[in-house]
């Protein structure tokens, strides 16, 4: 993981350290995961935006006064249902959900990569962060 020192002196420290080439591969996979998530999310948001703008000539509502979003745009089942019926705002929210899921997926990937490295301290660290994220995403969706 990360940028482990490549000198033999350091690489020998501790057991289960990977060699530099495996490190590089993990870094590249993580980069690919992040890029793919962002691009896919942006594409879905753009498609949803196009559908929404095409169907609404006039501005919808005002942002001067906070009212909060209707329930179908703030829960996972609601968003999926709206997106499946090709509703513009539903598609945008689906893209944004995917965007929020991208760093979460990165943490899950890290947990796996650390486990592969047999670095149990960091497996625990990654799983803890994942649990905090799950708690946040789960709150209010019950």
């Amino acid at each position: 993981m990360g940028n482990e020192p490549e000198t033999p002196k350091k690489a020998d420290v501790g057991k289960g350290h990977m060699d530099a080439s495996t490190d590089k591969r993990v870094d590249q996979l993580m980069g690919l995961l992040l890029r793919t998530g962002v691009l896919l999310a942006a594409a879905i948001v753009a498609i949803g935006g196009a559908v929404f703008v095409a169907r609404h000539a006039e501005p919808v509502g005002s942002y001067r006064v906070f009212q909060g979003e209707p329930v179908q745009y703030r829960t996972l089942p609601g968003i999926v249902r709206e997106a499946a019926s090709f509703n513009g705002r539903g598609l945008i929210q689906l893209g944004l959900l995917l965007l929020i899921a991208t760093p979460v997926a990165r943490v899950a990937f890290s947990a796996g990569a650390f486990a592969y490295e047999r670095d149990w301290v960091y497996v625990a660290v990654s799983l803890f962060v994942l649990a905090v994220l799950a708690y946040s995403l789960g709150s209010g969706h019950g």
Partner: peptide, 9 residues
């Protein structure tokens, strides 16, 4: 998102 702060438009 779940509190309705994220407006799609």
């Amino acid at each position: 998102l779940s509190r309705g702060y994220i407006d799609p438009a």
